[in-house]
Design a protein around this nucleic acid. Structure first.
Lengths: 188, 188
DNA sequence: GCATCAATGACACTTGGTGTCATCACCCTA
DNA sequence: TAGGGTGATGACACCAAGTGTCATTGATGC
C-alpha cells in the first residue's frame, strides 16, 4: 500500500471518459476530472499533455501493430497492398472492443477540437506507414502518397463502420474500401 | 473618416501575420496583435474565432473555386478525374502568390496546433467536394472516398511543392501526384 | 435635432495549462 | 536501524485564451 492509490493515470483516464460521455467534453473541467479521480489538476497534466490527450492515448499500440505489419509484409507485394495489410491489422485491433470504440467516437464526433486532434494522430500514423514503406525501399514521395491515400480509405471505412452498426467486421469494410478506391481511381 | 480607422479586420490580420512570422505563433499574444492594430483584445475575437483562425480565413474563396470546378466538370468525366480538375483549380489559385503561401506555410509547419487546424480545414474541403460529387449523382460513400483520396494526393503535392522551390507550377505537381496515385494504386 | 444601429472599449470572469517549491512515502545503503 | 536519495503528488501563484455584458461613440436615417 503506497501513500497514494495506485494507477493514477488509469483513474484519471477513466474519470475523464465518464465525464466526457456524461456531460460532454467542454462541459467538463480538468479540475472536475482530477477531483473524481481523487487527485489534483496539476497531477492530471503530469499524466496527460492536455484535456484531449485522454481520448488518444490509446493509439500508441495501434501504431506499433500497423508499422510491424507493413514492415513484415511479403517483399513481392505492391505498396498499396502493403498499406492495405497494415490498415487491416489496425482494423482487427480496433474491432476487438466495438462498444468502447463507438462511445469514444461519439465524443470525438461531437467536438471539432477533438476531430482536429484525431486528424493529426491519423496523419502521424500515415507518416509512420510512409517511413515503414521507405524502409522497404520505396522513395519518400511515393511512400507518403500511398500511405496518405490508404489512410483516406481507412478513414472512410471507419466512418462507415461507425455509422452503420450492421456493417459487420471493420477489417472487411476496410478491405472493401481499399478495393473500391482502386476501382474508382482506375477510372470507374 | 470614421471614429475608427477603417478595415479593422484587415489590420488585425496583417498585424497577426507579422507577429507570427517575426517572433513565432505562440510567442505572440492576442493582446499584442490587437495593440499593434490599434484595437483591443475583445475586438480581435469579434473578427476572428480564435488566434489560429487568422491563418485560415483565406480558405473560403478556395472552397468556392473547387466546388464550382467539380460541379461544372463535363458529365462524361469519371469521378477521380473530376476531383483532379477541382484540385487543379485550387492549385491555380494558390500559386498566384507563392511567397505569401510559403511564408504562411512555414508558420503552420512550425506549430502542431496550426497543423491541426489545417487538417480540419482540408477535411472540410474534402467534404465539400464529396457533396459536389453527390450533386453529380455519385453515391455518398464513394463520393467521400474519392474526395478524400484526391485530397490526400493534393496534400502530398502541396508539401512537395513547398519543400522544393524549383518544383515549378503547383498545378503541374498536383496533376502528377494524381497520376502517380492512380498508377501506384493500380498496382505499380 | 433626435432616435437608432453597428462597431468598439472596458472589465470581470472562467478555464486550460505551466513553473516552482514543499511534502511524503518508499528504497537503498551503511 | 538511521539516514539520505528518489519519484509522485499537493499547494499555489501565474499567464494567456476566450466569453459575457454593459457602456460608449460615431454614423445614418427621419
Amino acid at each position: 500500500m503506497g501513500r497514494w492509490e495506485p494507477n493514477a493515470r488509469g483513474r484519471l483516464g477513466r474519470a475523464a471518459m465518464e465525464l466526457y460521455v456524461e456531460r460532454g467534453f467542454d462541459q467538463t473541467t480538468v479540475a472536475e476530472i482530477a477531483e473524481q479521480a481523487g487527485l489534483t489538476k496539476r497531477t492530471f497534466f503530469r499524466h496527460y499533455a492536455d484535456k484531449r490527450d485522454v481520448l488518444f492515448a490509446g493509439m500508441a499500440p495501434l501504431r506499433e501493430v500497423v508499422v510491424r505489419a507493413v514492415a513484415e509484409a511479403p517483399a513481392s507485394l505492391p505498396p498499396f497492398a502493403v498499406v492495405s495489410l497494415g490498415l487491416e491489422a489496425a482494423a482487427e485491433m480496433i474491432q476487438e472492443r466495438p462498444e468502447d470504440v463507438k462511445m469514444r467516437q461519439a465524443v470525438i464526433d461531437a467536438h471539432l477540437e477533438l476531430q482536429e486532434r484525431e486528424l493529426v494522430k491519423l496523419a502521424a500514423l500515415a507518416a509512420d506507414i510512409a517511413a515503414a514503406l521507405r524502409g522497404r525501399g520505396l522513395d519518400a514521395w511515393p511512400a507518403r502518397l500511398v500511405a496518405e491515400a490508404g489512410m483516406a480509405a481507412f478513414r472512410v471505412a471507419f466512418a462507415r463502420w461507425i455509422a452503420n452498426s450492421a456493417e459487420g467486421l471493420l477489417t472487411q469494410v476496410v478491405r472493401e474500401s481499399m478495393e473500391e478506391l482502386e476501382a474508382t481511381v482506375t477510372g470507374g
